[in-house]
Amino acid sequence: MVNKENAAIKPGLFTLLRKYRFSIGFAFTIAALYFANRPVGTEAFDISVSNTIEMLSLLPPVFILVGLLDVWVPKETIIRYMGENSGWKGILMAVFLGSAAAGPLYVAFPITALLLRKRARLAYVLFFLGVWSTTKLPIVLYEISYMGLRFTAIHVAVGIPLFLLFSMIIEKVMPEETREALYRKAELELP
């Protein structure tokens, strides 16, 4: 499937092999594990497949969503709600967007790239990632049912203020050029 779809862009076989060199190496490792120790090899295969299926079911919709939002949401809107001077609105938006989400953190990266592209303030974008990693609503419900309300409440109560603090610190210590380069990169490259 991978090969056929890439053939549409027509990269050389060598480039393709190079691009996938780690994937191929790991695939061989799993095969070797299977011959060395059948149950471990089978489990490695099963876990890899189920993780990959999760990823395949999450990433494409996110990319499509990001692509659509890129076209639909004007830059001014993002600047107004999450830009340099958005103040509390930016923080609340980060909490709202981060909580509404579901899925692992790597799914959030394309969204943060989009936000940067539309000139959201860096501290709020980083805070959004922090919120995403602790208080995604569906996961919080899950956490309560498995780990208890007390554990979950402490997780959120400790996580949210600290992530906000660290986002501000990272933004502050980052050299101006690095930050500008980050925005330029987000503008030039597609999310």
């Binding site: 780690f22 994937s23 993780n51 494409p60 990319f63 692509g67 890129d70 999310p191």
Partner: peptide, 25 residues
């Protein structure tokens, strides 16, 4: 755009998934 972003990310993500699978097993 979506397809382009996805295909540029695929090699990394695929190897991550297999690495995790091996370690967890």
């Amino acid at each position: 755009k979506a397809w382009k972003s996805f295909s540029s990310l695929l090699p990394e993500v695929l190897s991550i998934m297999m690495f995790v699978g091996i370690s967890l097993a």
